[in-house]
Every structure is written in structure tokens, then in C-alpha cells.
Amino acid sequence: MPPKTTDLADDSDIDEPVADETASSARRVVAAYATDADECRMLFSMLGITPGDAS
């Protein structure tokens, strides 16, 4: 039997900011796979990261 969706994750930590290094890596991956700038912005938003310096 599959687990209940309430058993899968604790949503209490969703609003925590991600580390700068993690966000930078996520930006590179999203930018590489997004089909256009709008999709890239949407995915950044969904991940809770903002477009920033791609250092």
C-alpha cells in the first residue's frame, strides 16, 4: 500500500531560504534545461530562488 501523502513530508520547513551555493547550482541547472526565459523565471519562482549573479 502506498504511503499517505501526509506521511511523505513535513511542510513546516518549506519557507526556509536555500544556501547561496545551492541556489547558484540550481540556477545553472534550471537555465540549462529551460526552453526560454519565461520558463526559467517560472521554475526559479517554483524553487523559491531569485535570478541572481551566476558566478
Rank of each mutant, 00 (worst) to 15 (best):
M1R: 14
P3R: 06
P3Y: 07
P3V: 07
K4S: 06
K4N: 06
K4F: 05
T5V: 15
T5R: 14
T5G: 12
T6I: 07
T6H: 11
T6Q: 11
T6S: 13
D7N: 01
D7A: 04
L8Q: 06
L8G: 03
L8W: 04
A9H: 02
A9D: 02
D10P: 02
D10W: 06
D10L: 07
D10Q: 10
D10S: 10
D11I: 09
D11K: 12
D11N: 11
S12H: 04
S12T: 14
S12P: 05
S12L: 11
D13G: 11
D13T: 13
D13Q: 13
D13Y: 11
I14V: 13
I14D: 12
D15H: 14
D15V: 10
D15S: 15
D15A: 15
E16G: 03
E16W: 04
P17E: 15
P17T: 14
V18D: 08
V18H: 09
V18R: 11
V18Y: 10
A19Q: 12
A19E: 13
A19D: 15
A19V: 12
D20R: 03
E21P: 00
E21R: 02
T22Q: 14
T22I: 14
S24T: 14
S24W: 09
S25H: 04
S25T: 07
A26F: 03
A26E: 04
R27V: 03
R27E: 00
R28V: 15
V29D: 05
V29L: 15
V30Y: 02
V30Q: 01
A31G: 07
A31I: 08
A31W: 06
A31V: 07
A32K: 07
A32Q: 06
A32H: 08
Y33G: 10
A34E: 00
A34K: 01
T35Y: 05
D36V: 02
D36E: 00
D36R: 01
A37H: 10
A37I: 08
A37M: 07
A37E: 13
A37D: 12
E39A: 10
R41M: 04
R41W: 00
R41F: 02
M42T: 13
L43Y: 01
L43M: 07
L43N: 03
L43R: 04
L43P: 02
F44T: 04
M46C: 13
M46D: 14
L47Y: 00
G48L: 06
G48A: 08
G48Q: 06
G48W: 04
G48I: 03
I49W: 03
I49M: 01
T50Y: 03
T50M: 07
P51F: 06
P51N: 03
G52K: 00
G52D: 03
G52M: 05
D53H: 09
D53G: 07
D53M: 05
A54G: 05
S55R: 15
